[in-house]
Amino acid sequence: MSADFAAIAPPSARRVRWSLDHADFLGSLLVAPAILFIVCLVAVPFFLAIYYSLSAYNMGTLSFSFVGLDNFIAVTKSEIFRRSLMNTLLFTFASNAIALVLGKIAALLLLREFRGRTLVRCLLILPWAVPVALAAITWRWMLDSMYSVINWVLVHSHLVPAYVWPNWLGEETLAMISIIVIQAWRLFPFSAIIFLAGLTSVPKTIIDASYVDGAGYWRRTFQIVLPVILPIMMVAMLFGLVFTFTDMSVVYLVTKGGPTNSTQVLGSLAFQVGILSGDVGRGAAISLYFFPFLLVATFFLLRYLRRREI
């Protein structure tokens, strides 16, 4: 019967039906927009950046002369670059470690039943959902040298004497601590949500079994729950680390890398050198510097996860 219908149908309708019935054709058609999107917005800029980093391209000359690894070598020799590199590592690992601990605590609190839990869950997402510019401005006010509300609280609770309060963004160590805390504050809702998802996915019988087997809180947490949710946590950590490593928004909006480059990170330095100062080649070299390391680290982490999947 269906063959008869195909014979009656006009040729164009037949062609449409043919294409809808063939997975190869229809599949390619449906996936094409996504591929186009990735090529235009990820692949092209990425390869362009590689090309820039290997050339002496700047806003003044606009010439694409190939210079090999000169940009990378020059960058490596730069004092500010090395300082930024150390800052980036410290900033990334410290803020992620804090976010992880805070996330775990928040997740445990949110697992309990209490009044208004839904509201608290919504509020918890805010640091992550709020636009970073808005959050940065608020933090700048809270850490302001004159009008800091944090200092006001410290003074009024007699923890620090008046007029000699800490100058949060004006002193090197304090500035670093400040941006680490802000970044941790931004990241922890994400890690809390991942933790929450992980914790609720642990089968209840395993928890029950650990009670019957006599495990106390610490043993249950560190020998049962955390190992079981480790794969999911690793993915969250990977996201957090890569995200922080390549990010400049908090640093740029709160301290602009200062005072005296003490909070400069690779992202903000690349922006400063490549865009603000116009040395595109060198900026590209800075931002690509750690790409191979991130790539290798990600590769091994994902491979480890796939092997160990439980």
């Binding site: 019988t205 019957v212 006599g214 043993r219 439980i310």
Partner: peptide
């Protein structure tokens, strides 16, 4: 743990990340 009982659960409740040996040893380690 103080009741002198042992339990086998629906779906067994084995610890997925531990080898059989460590699963069996777990209540003794605690």
């Amino acid at each position: 743990r103080s009741r002198g009982i042992a339990m086998v659960f629906q779906g067994y409740g084995l610890y997925p990340h531990l080898k059989v040996r460590d699963n069996i040893a777990f209540p003794l380690r605690t």
